[in-house]
């Protein structure tokens, strides 16, 4: 049936669209702010009111990736002319790039970013896979004291993590796991595991056990049934859980700040530490933040179909 709308419905529709636009603007404003600052000339970064129209430049990103020092005398014109375009931008800012021989020295950002990726991805994989297996066990088998176990698992989330930060730090120092990748991976996996178990249990409970039973009767082992039937059916839940775990690990700041300082430091404690030489260089910080936002955005975007699809697309009659 074609939808014929009454004038009233039309007005309601337009109001709804207007409301959505307003809400979208409110939510996107900080992201726009970060994004625009990342491309601003330094002088325009802190103007009041904020500058909206400007000539975008990539200087903040050049600064973000290079190690620099302040110039103590003006650069020689010959050297300035010979420099590549990006180095000129740095000279323009009254700084020069540090080199070892001919090689440009990179800033700490790429390493920190890589650390963040390694730690967040690994801990997400661990938390989701362990959580899925645990949830499957709780969902499908009789576990003695099931309710108590589940409550115990949840209770690990009840204490604000910062409360245990100092003891954790001391323990980590004793076993030599401060400033190691594995240290943060274990920490973040432990953070996320309880959440992962609970979320996955909800999703797996939704999958009728007849699906596996059909596979069992049809000649498959429990393990095969799990991989061939349960995992594909739980894909939606796994995707959602993974996104949440990844965001938590990716954005974690307090423990990363305390537990790491160089080798295994992640991006969140690093970015604000890059105040630059002289006054705080907000454009470089914005550039670092802007790049830092991308992985979560991309990850979520890639999984959007799974996240949006309801669980009840199956052909089960209840």
């Amino acid at each position: 049936m074609a939808a014929v709308k009454t004038p009233r419905q039309k007005v309601a529709n337009q109001l709804a669209i207007a409301a959505v636009i307003v809400i979208a603007i409110i939510f996107l404003a900080p992201i726009y702010w970060i994004g625009s600052t990342a491309f601003k000339p330094r002088a325009l970064a802190t103007t009041v009111p904020p500058t909206v129209l400007f000539q975008p430049e990539v200087t903040p990103f050049v600064k973000l990736f290079t190690r620099r020092v302040q110039l103590n005398r003006p650069v020689e014109p010959g050297a300035y002319e010979a420099a590549p375009w990006w180095e000129k931008r740095i000279y323009d800012g009254g700084e020069r790039v540090l080199r070892v021989g001919e090689d440009v020295q990179l800033s700490g950002y790429p390493d920190r970013f890589l650390n963040s990726l390694i730690i967040a991805v690994t801990s997400t994989l661990l938390a989701v896979s362990m959580g899925t297996l645990t949830a499957y066990g709780f969902s499908r088998f009789r576990v003695a004291g099931e309710q108590d176990w589940l409550f115990f698992i949840l209770s690990t989330r009840m204490l604000p993590p910062v409360v245990v930060a100092i003891p954790m730090f001391l323990m980590y120092r004793v076993v030599g796991m401060t400033d190691t990748h594995i240290g943060l991976i274990i920490l973040y996996t432990a953070f996320n595991l309880s959440f992962s178990v609970w979320l996955m249990k909800g999703f797996i409970d939704e999958i009728p056990k007849e699906y596996e039973e059909a596979a069992l009767v049809d000649g498959y082992t429990r393990m095969q049934a799990f991989f061939k039937i349960v995992l594909p059916e739980a894909a939606t839940g796994i995707a959602a859980t993974a996104v949440f775990c990844f965001i938590t690990a990716w954005n974690e700041y307090a423990f990363a700040l305390m537990m790491t300082n160089r080798r295994a430091q992640t991006a969140p404690p690093f970015i604000p530490a890059q105040v630059g030489s002289g006054l705080t260089d907000w454009t470089t910080i914005a550039a670092g933040t802007f790049l830092f936002l991308l992985p979560v955005a991309i990850f979520t975007f890639l999984l959007r179909n799974h996240l949006l699809r309801g669980m009840s697309f199956g052909a089960i009659r209840k």
């Binding site: 009728p208 059909a214 049809d218 000649g219 594909p232 059916e233 894909a235 089960i316 009659r317």
Partner: peptide, 27 residues
């Protein structure tokens, strides 16, 4: 169950939603 060589049709049908009809029957 896998070793009894018996087939079971559930009241709920329990067709696998992530497979086509062909794959369901071939499973």
């Amino acid at each position: 169950a896998a070793d009894r060589d018996i087939a079971f049709v559930f009241q709920s049908f329990s067709l696998y939603p992530h497979m086509t009809v062909y794959e369901n029957i071939a499973f």
